[in-house]
Design a protein around this nucleic acid. Structure first.
Lengths: 232, 232
DNA sequence: TTGATCCTTCGGCCGCTGCCGAACGATTGA
DNA sequence: TCAATCGTTCGGCAGCGGCCGAAGGATCAA
């Protein structure tokens, strides 16, 4: 009865209050950091770390390192489905969880910032989304992007130095970088840096002093609309 | 976060190997006795008893006493659905579980017998099914049956003493009795006894000596076909 | 390089809970 | 009524597992 054992193991993983809290938070479909999950569960970081690695081991979660942060998300929609079924049995429906409050903090930083040397935040996501929607960019594996032929032309048109990016030695060309405020991947790597360069050189964006925060100029706003088809 | 607690509690109930074994067995949708579940789980009766009462308490199972046996079944389809989702996460599909072997034992007893003073086994179920399908009988609550007007006429026609059954003092008129071999309710109570009486009086069935086993006669087989519309 | 932040591993404590033996009601069949 | 069967409660034991403090690696900002 290998299936019975597997059943009880999966259920047991979900059956701890701390882990259940984490899973509940992750039901929003986004990725969360270990410390955030620890806070939610009401346990210390080291305890949370143990829980998280066990859930990764049990194929409930997927982890992804991002700088000194580690983001965790549900491993599959199957997991989300199972949790929802359990909630149905529990008889109470999942609370919508008011996140509005959290979004008030640091709105500028969340709007646009540099992530190392490329754009992040809502603007970074908007750029990435626009490129993928237009067919210029498509995910390659879980870590990279592929720049299509039309993407190559598009970059040329708006003045992104693609050739320079390709020639950047050991560096990854186009990388998927998990956005910590939007919790979705944006474009990084050499191409991401080249795109950010273009934003700064053409006066579409400017760095705020002593901060990672980036301000989108009126010119940039118009460019986002005209060249990327995104309203921001 | 009342929902989180409830989630972990439900999952924890399913997260024990012994309980998971029981739940797996109960996934066939039928009711099983406590001892059968104990055997399946590989624990002693008293351990199983504890598990079962906890699962009843947690609304995972429903229990029903039947003589000195106690039958347990999944409390709802929601529970079955949740278990199935967990199995999907576990990645292995539920084994069909070869039950064919078990059905070979005591085929006569399973085919037809008396349960106290009424018919049980496949014949008892067939009679009950035929009456409900024809609209003569319908469940009333979870414990009783209601005999409809057409049912009353039908009983009159085949010679069941309904009036006598109604007059039987303190006794329940038409009761749902869980069939231990078919695991589904058949008709018992005064009406069930009266129906069985008819079967014996009209030569449709005869008791085997020193046994609860009942043999359906050729006459009875024909009656089942003609009057009940059931092939047996 | 230094300090700060994020996360992990290690070690030990403690409480929960699953397990069984024993004993006891309840029901059934003879 | 008596014996057998089914199921339960009780008590005690043992082990798993969740928790934290301490310490250390990795990464980032200055």
């Amino acid at each position: 009865m290998i299936t019975v054992n597997a059943l009880s193991e999966v259920a047991a993983l979900m059956g701890d209050p701390a882990r259940a809290s984490m899973l509940s938070l992750l039901m929003d479909g986004r990725a969360h950091t270990a410390s955030e999950l620890a806070l939610t569960a009401g346990v210390t970081a080291q305890t949370a770390s143990g829980h998280l690695s066990r859930m990764v081991e049990g194929n409930l979660l997927a982890a992804r390192a991002q700088g000194r942060n580690r983001f965790y998300r549900l491993a599959s929609s199957d997991v989300a489905h199972a949790i929802e079924s359990l909630m149905a049995v529990a008889g109470s429906r999942a609370a919508p969880a008011s996140k509005a409050a959290a979004w008030r903090r640091d709105p500028d930083l969340r709007y646009c910032r540099t992530c190392y040397d490329h754009l992040a935040g809502q603007v970074g996501i908007a750029v990435t989304d626009a490129l993928t929607k237009a067919g210029h960019l498509s995910p390659k594996g879980t870590q990279d992007w592929e720049l299509t032929q039309t993407g190559e032309l598009f970059c040329q048109r708006i003045g992104v130095d693609v050739a320079g990016a390709r020639a950047s030695g050991t560096r990854h060309f186009a990388r998927q970088c998990l956005d910590w405020s939007e919790r979705r991947p944006h474009i990084s790597g050499a191409l991401g840096a080249a795109i950010a360069d273009t934003f700064f050189k053409r006066g579409w964006a400017e760095r705020l002093r002593r901060s990672r925060t980036v301000r989108l100029t009126d010119l940039g706003r118009r460019a986002m609309h005209r060249d990327f088809g995104a309203a921001l």
